[in-house]
């Protein structure tokens, strides 16, 4: 009952052009049926994410470990709440990040869980920068 060959083939890597995404904006693309949020973070959002002491987080992880160095303004996360799989809304909640409308989990501008029932941070999908304005997810 595992995924069949065509499902796996359809889950091949995709390329996303980042040039139209302005600072402070984010886009949602679908990969493997999952929504992937790509946020072009503002300076303020980055600073907020880095100012938090890592040890105080429910799922400790530094912002640097969640983005590609040299591309610190880009946050790429799978937009599926780690609680029970709803899609969080971007730019909502108390932490300048994501807010899940189902059970009230709140994520910060690095996609890390800050408040609510979710146990873990929003996962970062495997991706690489093909160029400065293009990433390949998968």
């Amino acid at each position: 009952m595992n995924p069949d060959a065509s499902t796996i083939a359809a889950g091949a890597p995709i390329e996303v052009d980042l040039s139209p995404v302005a600072e402070g904006q984010d886009i949602k693309v679908f990969w493997r049926g999952k929504p992937i949020y790509i946020s072009h973070r503002t300076k303020k959002q980055i600073d907020e994410a880095r100012a938090v002491p890592v040890a105080s987080l429910p799922d400790p992880q530094s912002d640097e470990a969640r983005v590609k160095s040299g591309h610190d303004q880009w946050l790429v996360v799978i937009g599926i709440c780690t609680h029970l799989g709803c899609i969080p809304i971007a730019h909502e909640g108390n932490y300048d990040g994501f807010f899940c409308p189902c059970h009230g989990s709140q994520y910060d501008s690095s996609g890390r869980i800050r408040q609510g029932p979710a146990p873990a941070n929003l996962p970062v999908p495997p991706y690489t920068f093909v160029s400065d304005t293009k990433i390949q997810i998968g």
Binding site: M1, N2, P3, T7, R32, G33, K34, I80
Partner: peptide, 17 residues
Amino acid sequence: VTLLWGGYSVGNPTLNR
């Protein structure tokens, strides 16, 4: 969960099974 879904998320294979 992957086994239940038959894919990477709830989708057509899930509905079929």
